[in-house]
């Protein structure tokens, strides 16, 4: 199943993802209404994209007293239905990622729904710091990256022999 992957190593902190998200979902440009957020650490030169991880065992889903949060069978996204939501904010408190937002204008809670399987944010991420892929892929890529260093060392050592 595909997931949104947030990779701080590749993130440039341009926040185009935030703007694309608020625009597609709310028709306005407003980071406070975006489902994705880049937290910037300017002094240290680090940018960390954050958002809903659509957890396997989603605390928000468990915390919701009226089952307004459910899993979409097709995209596997954790979805919040604003019509069922009673506005109690238990999900917001339960979520370890701060991925549940509150819309001050509409007075409703909101979260990422993976744009029904076609996330807008990734279309504006030039470095692919935010990408839509299977978790397994991330796993494999990281393994290969680490193994490459080891392999390089092995090759050097072999050449020296």
């Amino acid at each position: 199943m595909k997931k949104l992957i947030f990779d701080p190593e590749l993130c440039t902190g341009c926040r185009a993802c935030e703007l694309a998200c608020s625009f597609i979902n709310e028709g306005v440009f407003s980071p406070s209404k975006a489902r994705i957020r880049v937290v910037k650490f300017d002094r240290d030169g680090i940018d960390v994209p954050t958002g809903c991880e659509h957890c396997e065992d989603a605390p928000c889903m468990i915390a919701c007293p009226v089952r307004a949060i459910y899993r979409d069978e097709e995209t596997y996204a954790v979805i919040l239905d604003p019509d069922l939501c009673i506005g109690c904010k238990r999900c917001m408190i339960a979520c370890p990622f701060g991925a549940i937002g509150f819309d001050e204008d509409k007075k409703i809670f909101f979260k990422c729904d993976l744009c029904m399987g076609d996330p807008e944010c990734i279309k504006w991420c030039f470095t692919q710091a935010v990408r839509y892929s299977t978790s397994l892929n991330v796993n494999t890529t990281k393994k290969i990256k680490m193994a490459k260093k080891e392999a390089t060392a092995q090759i050097r050592a072999r050449d020296l022999r």
Binding site: L10, T12, G13, C14, R15, A16, L19, G45, F126
Partner: peptide, 11 residues
């Protein structure tokens, strides 16, 4: 490819 930091909305 990645590198660098960006201003708002700049690839």
């Amino acid at each position: 490819i990645p590198a660098g930091r960006a201003c708002m909305s700049c690839p």
